[in-house]
Computed example of a mutant assay.
Amino acid sequence: MTAKKSLDRPGWWMDLPDSAESRHYLGVRDSIAAHIQSGDLAPNACLPSERQLQTGTGAARGTVRAALFQLEAEGLIYRKERSGWYVSPAPIVYDPTRWEGFMSYVTAQKRSPRTELLSAREVAATAEQAVVFGVKPGAILYELRRRRHIDERAVLVESILVDPRMAPKLLDHDLEGSLTQVLRHQYNIDVARNRIEMQPCALTQEAALALRVKSGLPGLLVTRISEDAQGRVVEYDQEYWRHDALKISVDIHVR
C-alpha cells in the first residue's frame, strides 16, 4: 500500500478553526481527528508539519505536539523516523479462538504480510522457560526473533522458542515464512491446542527499537503456548504488537 504524501486538497490545515478552544490541544486533536474520520485524510497519508499545523490553528508548538501525541495514543496516527506523522491504516482483525498463522489471516484480509528474520540461535532455557517446556534450566532451546510487517509497516516483533527435540536442525530451514508450515511439512508437527494471554503493555526498549518507535509507547503483548495432540509444547511465542495495528474480534454463538 503506497503512502500518500499529503491530502489531495493542499492547505486544508489552514481551515482549522482559530479560536481559544482550538488552541487547546484537545481542540487541535478534534480538528485533525475529524479530517481522518471523514476520509479527508486517507490511511498512510502524511500530516502537515508541526509548523504548518501551528500556522493553521494559531496554537503553540507544544500544544500541537500534545495533540499529535494524543492522536498517537489513540491509534489514529503514527510516526516515522525523520519523516513525520502519518494516518494509521485500519488494524488487522485477529480472532484468538482460531488457529491460523499470521501470514494466512493477514492475506485473508487482503493485506500484504511479510516476515523478517532478525536472529536464529541456540539459547539456554531460563527457569521460567524450563517449566514451560518441561526441561531443566540451562537446556538448549532454539530462539527465533522475527519482525513482521503488514503492507510494509512493521507491526510486531516476536521471540519464539522451540524445543530442538521436537524439531532438530530447525535453524537450517527458511524461517522468514510460515513457521507453522515448516513444522508441519518438515517435522509432521501439528498444533492441537493454543494457550493465549493478551495484556496491554509499554513497549520495551528492545521491542521499540525493532519497531523503530520510542520505547514506552503503548503496545499489546500476546503470549502463546502451542501444544501438539500429545500435549508436548511446540512453540512458546511472545509478540509485542503496535497498539494501533491489531483489533481483537471474537464471534461466540450461544446455544
Rank of each mutant, 00 (worst) to 15 (best):
S6L: 09
D8G: 03
R9E: 11
M14E: 15
L16A: 08
P17W: 04
I32Q: 10
A34H: 10
H35N: 07
D40N: 13
P43H: 07
A45Q: 09
L47S: 01
P48C: 07
Q52T: 05
G58S: 11
A59R: 02
V64M: 06
L71S: 07
I77K: 00
I77D: 00
Y78V: 04
K80V: 06
E81A: 14
R82M: 12
S83G: 06
G84P: 07
Y86A: 00
P89D: 02
P89T: 01
V93G: 15
V93C: 14
T97M: 10
G101W: 02
F102P: 15
M103Q: 13
M103L: 14
V106Y: 00
T107A: 13
Q109R: 06
R111A: 04
R111G: 01
R114Q: 15
E116H: 11
L118K: 04
S119T: 06
A124M: 08
A124W: 02
E128C: 02
G134M: 04
G138D: 11
G138V: 09
A139G: 08
I140L: 04
Y142H: 12
L144I: 06
L144M: 05
R146H: 02
E152F: 11
E152S: 15
A154F: 01
L156K: 11
E158W: 00
E158C: 09
P164T: 15
A167S: 08
P168I: 13
P168T: 15
D172V: 09
L183E: 09
H185F: 09
N188D: 14
R195Y: 11
E197P: 01
Q199A: 14
C201A: 11
A208E: 06
L209D: 12
L211K: 06
R212D: 14
K214W: 02
S215P: 11
S215F: 06
L217G: 03
L217M: 10
V222W: 03
T223D: 13
R224M: 10
I225Q: 11
E227T: 13
D228P: 14
A229W: 04
A229D: 15
V233N: 12
E235Y: 02
Q238M: 06
Y240M: 08
H243M: 10
D244P: 01
A245W: 00
S249Y: 06
S249R: 13
D251N: 11
I252G: 05
I252D: 04
I252C: 05
